[in-house]
Design a protein around this nucleic acid. Structure first.
Lengths: 344, 344
DNA sequence: AACACGGATGTAACCGCTTACAACCGAGGA
DNA sequence: TCCTCGGTTGTAAGCGGTTACATCCGTGTT
């Protein structure tokens, strides 16, 4: 691999000049610049990022760490992809306008992954942390070492930048639709993983909203893992109850799809006998039968805002840390009992 | 940020010893090691990866570059996620057992992205290239600079490691099912992007297989972009034909779903009037009505094998470059005209 | 003609870690 | 007692860029 020294020698200049050309400095005579560029092109010189990073104290890399949920490989392949991947693509899109790249790492929360993240922190200029991969204390320790922005994390706590979605508002809106517009009273809820703050927030918002209407009851099936399979399991649990709720809300769309399919398999009509709703507004929810009523969240924006914020921090922004909450949107389709939408 | 020098001073040893402790060398007296570790823990020392990389000539980072297709952000969010993301997760899973991390970058093929990749090559020890992001010549130039493994690339050409899927075999098997088992003769095909070698291979395999049966004709609608929306567009094109094919195969599942939905919207029964099939076996294909008959490909394995191969190359393996072809699997569900599967 | 000045270029120190080699130390052997 | 030897630790030279500072050179001044 050619180095600046090789280029300098071949172009008959010093390494300083080569470096100046690479970085686009304007105090190089055009004729010199061209000579250097020609050599660079000829030998295919690409600067070593480690050397640059060491010298400039800037690696031009940010990291993103998130949870890897499915234990079953097939699950990962089929179900687990949506949330974090959308965030990744959004972040990458923001980075496309800069010189920095995205390093990523997934893992199950726990000691080994924590160590991995620690080592990773030596490779990057800043870190995006998705959901609760780290305990609050660990997160805070990390944030002392380098800029950190949390995405969809519960640890809104003091002095941390967080970007998240307004789960309570979305859930309230959905609940009002179910209890107000449709008049359902006996409600059910299929919960998600405990380490997903989103899931926790959704459940509590649903419960409290549901209980404000007179006669509203909530039958909670906890402990899903956001997969379609766990939705089916939850449906079986509900089928074993004395009375099945009139409407079942789920902590995310995939579980909702699982619930619907399992109910249908048992001859129950959705939404005729039981209404089912999701949360997230992912693609499959549009194509299932009946189409899924859900709450849409601006996942992509989540990534965009978090990336932008992190870049500012890396640039040295010192404005106080702040939690940014993005709005959700109720998406009414047919699984709640509403008629088919006119459009489409 | 504390450095080895700080740690060395505080522990009363030399930087060499600190380094030896960090790297787990066995020629450090246990008592010394413990003292050093205590200091490391206390000051929260994390080695700077740039300095390590420079010194060791190893960055412990590999890159993955792939195409970003959807121009429309919404499309990306809803449709575009599956193939490359599965690969990413698979690669990441392999890396989890090592000290190396994954750097990734997406972009539309073209000059700007090529430059980005070039710069990126200074940050990594090796590169995974998904589909045809680069022209063969560029790919080859890259491969001269550092280890490269191509995934699902057409450039099987000389001297390049490639891991891919046996599209022709899968397509042949599917075609045989349609023409043999079901006896369809007037066939249609909805093609994918020209820069997706998979799409190209699938089309040509389908065409040649279909034409080997007597009376087999193929009505090709080219130029889809793998999105559901482009499937709908293709369906509209087919609806404008004098005669709609008896069976329409699509270059991927998402387009197949689009085709089905658009046909159904026009009152056409699938599979009663027209059979539709996909390719990929993604999650939504299982939940649509009718469930989609498709060809499953081991996307995850693609990532796993490619990552493993790249790591070997980085370790210095000099065995000759080789193309590895993974098998596909016919997944029969209902959209081809077969009755519902007994199980599930 | 001597001199000041500013633009272009070169010199060399430094970024933080690794590692070849040197130095040191205590124990065992002659 | 002196030497050898193996195990432990220290010294210092890189790794490949960047950049503060020094140097050089051609003009314009006086």
């Amino acid at each position: 691999m050619p180095t600046v020294y090789d280029v300098a020698r071949l172009a008959g200049v010093s390494t300083a000049t080569v470096s100046r050309v690479m970085r686009g400095s304007d105090l190089v005579r055009p004729v010199t610049r061209d000579r250097v560029l020609a050599v660079i092109e000829e030998v295919g010189f690409v600067p070593d990022a480690s050397a640059q990073g060491l010298s400039r104290r800037r690696k031009e890399i940010i990291g993103l760490v998130g949870l890897e949920r499915g234990v079953d490989e097939t699950d990962i392949e089929r179900d687990g992809l949506l949330f974090v991947d959308v965030v990744v693509h959004a972040v990458e899109a923001v980075l496309r306008g800069t010189d920095t790249s995205l390093l990523l790492s997934f893992g199950p929360s726990g000691e080994p992954f924590h160590n991995r993240i620690r080592a990773l922190s030596g490779k990057v200029d800043g870190l995006l942390v998705v959901e609760d991969v780290l305990a609050p204390a660990q997160l805070r320790a990390l944030a002392r070492r380098l800029p950190v922005v949390a995405i969809a994390a519960s640890a809104a706590g003091a002095g941390l930048d967080v970007v998240r979605v307004d789960n309570p508002a979305g859930m309230r809106e959905l609940t009002n639709h179910l209890t107000g517009h449709h008049g359902y009273r006996r409600l059910g809820f299929v919960g998600g993983p405990r380490d997903a703050p989103d899931a926790v927030e959704r459940l509590s918002a649903f419960s409290s909203a549901a209980r404000t209407v007179s006669g509203g009851t909530v039958d909670v099936v906890p402990g899903g893992d956001f997969s379609e399979a766990s939705g089916r399991t939850a449906a079986r649990v509900l089928l074993g109850r004395e009375a099945i709720p009139e409407a079942v809300a789920c902590a995310n769309d995939q579980m909702a799809i699982g619930v619907m399919r399992e109910l249908q398999r048992s001859g129950i009509d959705v939404p005729g006998d039981v209404a089912v709703t999701g949360f997230d507004n992912i693609f499959p929810g549009r194509v299932v039968e009946p189409a899924l009523t859900t709450v849409g969240q601006p996942v992509r924006d989540l990534g965009v805002r978090a990336a932008a914020r992190l870049l500012e921090r890396i640039e040295g922004s010192t404005e106080p840390a702040r939690a940014e909450t993005l709005p959700t949107e109720l998406v009414i389709r047919r699984s709640c009992g509403c008629p088919a939408e006119p459009k489409e």
